[in-house]
Design a protein around this nucleic acid. Structure first.
Lengths: 248, 248
DNA sequence: GCTGGGAGAGGCTTA
DNA sequence: TAAGCCTTTCCCAGC
């Protein structure tokens, strides 16, 4: 494909905010947050209306190279090579696509919409949980949701029937070590701040064995729950899997 | 586009492990780890040789819907609607693409390669650091790299000139709260296991203010460093940004 | 297969 | 803009 044809097609697509699909033999270099080289091979290149660019191989969901908010240009080198360039200032990074052969470039007029409607996010579960904490534990009542602390944001802060503060960390998937350390940190923060005995509850559908051990060692509590996703997320039930170890 | 034409083109692409590009007006439903609905609109659909499928809008690098290792099929409903289905068993999930109009379906013969060569990963920095710990602190010598503990994996364990164990957590980007809690956990683990005074050093190019405060509160240490990425990553220098607070 | 953890994480929300 | 954090995280390496 001639450079002039390629360039005008590309310019037209960029101007119209089309979705641009390029198939071609190329060698890709990235320099920025890291560096990478993608040896010569046939690839799919996608340029979208928001100036995001991505280079895909014929496997995996994620692109091998990509950039958001890029400045896109192309140039013809003296030796006849066509280069497609994507640059960005913050962070400073660049993708250089050495196009040895262009099999096709096609522009598609697609709306720049943003209308995926997702159900079952943690936010929804959080709201559902806040509606009624008592089925987690009798006498538990919410004090605050998404409380911002000096260091981090607690999902839920509640008070139990004995007047203890309870920090609740909600997860929508199997809890791992990081969930436990996260909760631990919040409990420490709240405890220090309020200078009051504070419990910590990790609420997740499942928990990894090592995470449960760590949690128990910290004197925190774990509750399991099931959730069903319909129009709005519903929490089906709470299973108390673990009793508090230390009464301090 | 006629269903039979679409179906045969799709089948051919799947059989040949082509990269398949579909542009069409569609409505997408996802049920699985969450649920989502993507209202009718023109979208890009990519099917790759490894049976990964993704649906893209004309913005963002990441697809709105996607699935790995999917079983892909298509069917014609009685009312004339063409459906493209992607299913998976573990986790059980499904994408249903209601194709109202097919603008194009194109198969591209692309190799199923996996040859991105990335430099500047944490692994590389780790190796570079292990070559000489002494420029971090005089007398510091490595004991173990990537030590697997019961709960988590330490980046580096070293011994300082006074015989104290030193747990080093290396990050290639700005350290946040989770880096600190992660290091804290390792230090606790090592300290308990070996029953010996253990220091913890967080090594990162930058650190967030709140993370530094938390780290200081825990009696851990932070060192900043610069790195340059060439063929192999090189660590340019170590800056001691923070002195140990507690000598316990 | 599960687990741990990095990623050029991306992307969103709020201070 | 920075911080905090969820994600259908994805993806890989190790066990």
């Amino acid at each position: 494909m001639k450079f002039e044809d390629f360039k005008s097609k590309l310019q037209s697509g960029l101007n119209n905010q089309d979705l641009i699909i390029i198939i071609g033999e190329c060698y890709v270099e990235y320099i920025g947050r890291a560096t990478s080289k993608l040896p010569r091979g046939k690839r799919l290149i996608i340029i979208k209306a928001d100036k995001s660019i991505s280079i895909h191989e014929n496997r995996l969901v994620r692109p091998t190279n990509y950039m958001m908010d890029s400045l896109i240009s192309c140039q013809l080198l003296e030796d006849g090579e066509i280069q497609l360039l994507a640059k960005r200032l913050k962070p400073k990074e660049s993708i250089t696509i050495h196009l040895h052969e262009i099999e096709s470039i096609t522009n598609y007029s697609l709306p720049i919409s943003n209308d995926l409607r997702l159900s079952g996010s943690e936010k929804e579960l959080n709201d559902a949980l806040m509606d009624d904490l008592s089925f987690l534990e009798e006498g538990l009542r919410p004090v605050n949701q998404q409380q911002v602390f000096r260091k981090g944001i607690c999902d839920i802060i509640a008070e139990d029937k004995n007047g203890n503060l309870v920090v609740i960390e909600l997860k929508r998937r199997k809890a791992d070590l990081s969930c436990v350390t996260q909760l631990k940190m919040y409990v420490e923060q709240v405890s220090n701040l309020k200078n009051i005995k504070t419990r910590g509850i990790l609420l997740a559908p499942e928990i990894r064995k090592s995470a449960l051990e760590l949690l128990e060692g910290y004197g925190l509590e774990y509750f399991s729950y099931d959730f069903e996703i319909k129009e709005r997320s519903e929490i089906k039930g709470i299973g108390k899997s673990q009793k508090k170890l230390f009464e301090y």
